[in-house]
């Protein structure tokens, strides 16, 4: 019978589930405990999250397989694709057998799904480093909200911590009720419900300037909404200040 391991949704939880499932022979699957379980005929096991054990797994990946492999695994995890736990399990089994180069065997069936998921996440992170918009609140905090497809707040925060290092900001994933806070020194994650902000007096001024800049920098006779959307899918438009209506 299929053995199904359920974890609490955290990355550490996933690492523990991998440890539990690693040596099981036959059919195995790993899922988050709040994903709908499609498997009627499965032997279900709840995995306890244990930081010490998770650290051991992470250490083994980093030391035996290298940072690149760890990065791929963690990025793939943030894709939140329901099957990704199982995919990562198969990938890691293959990688520990093959060595650090496994991550490059992109055409191999054990590698491909993880590579694909991590690639998509990487792309969205890169896109959002550009598309995220901050607005200055009355209290002088720069507040930026977005609704990314993947759970990328953790991956995006370091970029802004280094780029906007001398300003206080909040990066808010409105859909997941998750935010990264930065106090000009450190950043941390915390839950945050959708909120309504009141903005500083200058905020409207710079927004208007940005909107007119955006309008005037386009060459009207070469209008191409198709190309614009291809690079900047419509799902991201909601929070783009330059695009109205």
């Amino acid at each position: 019978m299929m053995q199904l391991f359920l974890y609490d949704g955290s990355f550490e939880g996933l690492m523990c589930a991998i440890a539990s499932a690693y040596r099981i022979q036959g059919d195995v699957a790993i899922q988050k405990n709040d994903d709908p379980a499609p498997l009627l005929l499965a032997h279900v096991q709840d995995v306890q999250t244990d930081s010490a054990q998770a650290s051991k797994v992470i250490e083994a990946i980093v030391q035996k397989l290298g940072m690149e492999t760890f990065k791929r695994v963690s990025y793939a995890y943030f894709s939140e694709i329901p099957e990704i736990g199982t995919d990562i399990l198969h990938f890691l089994r293959y990688a520990f057998k093959t060595g650090p180069s496994a991550v490059e065997h992109l055409a191999h069936p054990a590698v491909k799904p993880v590579f694909k998921a991590s690639w998509r996440v990487t792309r969205e992170v890169h896109l959002m480093t550009g598309l995220l918009r901050f607005s200055e609140t009355k209290s002088g905090i720069y507040y930026g909200c977005f609704e990314p497809t993947y759970d990328i707040t953790t991956l995006l925060a370091p970029h802004f911590a280094s780029r906007l290092s001398d300003q206080t900001w909040v990066l808010h994933d409105v859909r997941r009720h998750l935010a990264a806070f930065y106090d000009q020194k450190n950043w941390w994650l915390a839950e945050l419900e959708p909120t309504i902000q009141s903005y500083s007096d200058e905020e409207e001024f710079y927004r208007t300037l940005w909107q007119s800049y955006f309008k005037h920098i386009a060459i009207e006779s070469r209008r191409s909404t198709e190309r614009q959307r291809q690079h900047m899918p419509k799902k991201y438009w909601k929070y783009l200040i330059e695009i109205k209506g």
Partner: peptide, 19 residues
């Protein structure tokens, strides 16, 4: 200081002509 530079460059938006 304010700011960093990314080797590969970052696009912040795409105008109506797709650039």
């Amino acid at each position: 200081m304010l700011g960093t530079a990314a080797a590969a460059g970052i696009c912040h938006s795409w105008s109506d002509d797709g650039r």
